[in-house]
């Protein structure tokens, strides 16, 4: 079994990375669940990258030179933390937009049928 030691050669023993038990299959195919896991890991890292870029922009905004250590040591104050929280909320809304489109599939089917009829009508008009 793989372990977190993959990241650190200095620790002789490392914890496992997978919990005991079979992971539930949610999306019908285990690969779809795995893909979702990858997508959400990427989404997480995008948010991490956003915060780092935000840090760089704010340090640059002071007009003073700064180093990598300054970026690493930066702690957002309450105002910056609040702005970042607001960004994350909007980001989550964009990221998970499809969840809001799930409802009322019958209504969506009716809309689709109406659209198809409209396209059909256009075709006949030619």
């Amino acid at each position: 079994m793989s372990s977190l030691a993959d990241d650190s050669s200095t620790t002789p023993v490392a914890p496992p990375v997978v919990p005991k038990g079979l992971r539930p299959a949610y999306l019908g195919d285990v690969h779809l669940d795995q893909l979702l896991g990858i997508a959400m890991a990427v989404a997480t890292e995008v948010s991490v990258m956003h915060d780092r870029l935000d840090t760089v922009a704010r340090l640059a905004g002071t007009g003073k030179p700064f180093t990598m250590a300054d970026i690493d040591a930066y702690i957002p104050d309450d105002t910056v933390a609040s702005e970042r929280a607001k960004w994350r909320k909007a980001y989550l809304q964009r990221l998970l937009r499809v969840m809001h489109e799930t409802f009322s599939p019958e209504a969506k089917q009716a809309e689709l049928k109406k659209y198809a009829e409209f396209v059909d009508l256009l075709g006949r008009a030619d």
Partner: peptide
């Protein structure tokens, strides 16, 4: 927790809230 970890955990907390 370094800056990256704080950012990661903040996102994951907000994800759970959402």
């Amino acid at each position: 927790q370094n800056g990256e970890e704080r950012a990661r955990h903040s996102f994951l907390i907000d994800l759970k809230n959402y």
